[in-house]
Design a protein around this nucleic acid. Structure first.
Lengths: 253, 253
DNA sequence: TTAGGGCCTCACGCAACGGGAGAGTCAATC
DNA sequence: GATTGACTCTCCCGTTGCGTGAGGCCCTAA
């Protein structure tokens, strides 16, 4: 059991931060001394490490909390995902570097511009990732050989991961179909539970997907028609029902 | 002249951000339309680009403002420095990646830990190190005034950075020694190539160093006698030869 | 002339802490 | 046993960097 100060020096964060994380319920120390001192166990440190990884990726704390306290949270999968996201961030930095080089090349040391950059060029990298990814995805997925190209993004998962995903997906969708087939209304508790399970699973596997592929909240149905059609082919009407359920889930939460 | 919305889409930032930067006097548009619309000129876009580079580096806006409105502000130098800092950031990310790999390797896919990481290891990278490295630096540079002044600057390096630097330095100096030992004249192409490599590396690692420790261009020989003595201890005559080579490099370039 | 964008200025809100103030705790030392 | 100094606690206010309306003007196009 470590005191708060020890943890702070170990993890190179401030004591205030640790107290803050306790306050918001993100990282509650697993014990307290008689005097009320926070006492952190090894597991708490592991959790802190995870949190810091997420923070490096600029996830909002609230999101981190949601992810990590979700019933199906899988540390190994999370680490793989984080690795992938960090790789991508590194690439983005690389792009910024390229832009810098380009900019530097465009002026000489005296500060005079040799050849003016176009206004488009000037910002051709700053990663407002949201927009960028959406464009990229649109471009990517608008094409016929889209599936081929998608292989790249999936390549980060191992075969075992994929198996696990398929199984988990199958289970969740099986549950959804069952509830749907039973004629359950989309705002019934059973439906909401099922759709929430699906949402959690989506978050787990697709969190870093561009929105077009991203099944999240109520949005996805409108976004990815291919996905919707597939669902409806297997079970006509299910997609729309899921959409309703997701809405009900949102207003319920 | 661009309207605020155009600038926003170009630079992929929000309109609110632009207004905010105007409010705090960081980026005032160089004109207004009759109706009071903000009008941005090309120069404003350049300035915005710079600001965004700084923001990528997480400089506080107040600091960015201070830097950019300072009388001696040099765009070219700023870009070089930004490039260096971004490189460093990328390296830090690399260190995080290493830690992630290490962590992943320590557990198996089922989530069971194979071999527990030590608590120290667990955090051995998160933006970090001040203390550890300062000790090393103190040992190396002694308690000189120069060291005091440069302590802040060095505290920015991670331990991984230092490792990398040492390796790269060793390589470059190895090459220098080899060329020198072969009796090459300091104005020969091989010598110039070697000294240029050294200069580039210096720029990379010491760009924003105080001059006392700063190995740059031909300057360093006169500045840091300790450094020179060290070089000569390892390889008598090399320092002077490097000085010559650096001069030849300057006149050649 | 009316609708639909785009723009304006307040003005309040929020996340993620930083930084005290005031007070208890704990081990070592006088 | 009393004091000292380092460590901790709980409020609670402050700050940065915007997000997000509200309410209202500008401007073109139908």
């Amino acid at each position: 059991m470590y005191q708060i100060g020890e943890v702070a020096t170990l993890a190179k964060v401030s004591i205030r931060l640790l107290r803050h994380y306790d306050e918001i319920g993100l990282l509650a120390p697993s014990g307290r001394s008689e005097a009320g001192y926070r006492l952190y166990a090894h597991g708490d440190l592991q959790r802190l490490q995870q949190i810091l990884f997420y923070r490096t990726l600029e996830f909002p704390l609230e999101e981190i909390k949601r992810l990590m306290t979700a019933p199906g949270f899988d540390r190994h999968a999370a680490l793989l995902q984080q690795r992938e996201l960090i790789r991508r961030k590194a690439q983005e930095l690389g792009a910024v570097l390229d832009l810098l080089e380009h900019t530097i090349a465009g002026i000489d040391p005296s500060g005079q511009e040799k050849n003016t950059m176009s206004t488009k060029e000037m910002f051709e990298v700053f990663p407002d990732m949201k927009q960028e990814y959406q464009d990229e995805a649109q471009e990517r997925w608008g094409n016929t050989d889209a599936w081929k190209q998608s292989a790249a993004r999936w390549s980060k998962y191992t075969r075992a991961d994929m198996e696990r995903m398929k199984q988990e997906m199958a289970q969740v969708f099986g549950q959804l179909e069952k509830v749907f087939a039973a004629g359950t209304r989309p705002d019934a508790p059973a439906a909401i539970a099922a759709i929430e399970a699906q949402r959690l699973l989506s978050d787990k596997w697709f969190y870093d997907c561009p929105k077009e592929l991203h099944v999240k909240g109520t949005e996805w149905v409108a976004r990815d028609e291919r996905y919707v059609r597939n669902i409806d082919k297997n079970c006509p009407g299910l997609a729309a029902w899921m959409h309703q359920a997701a809405k009900a889930n949102l207003t319920a939460g």
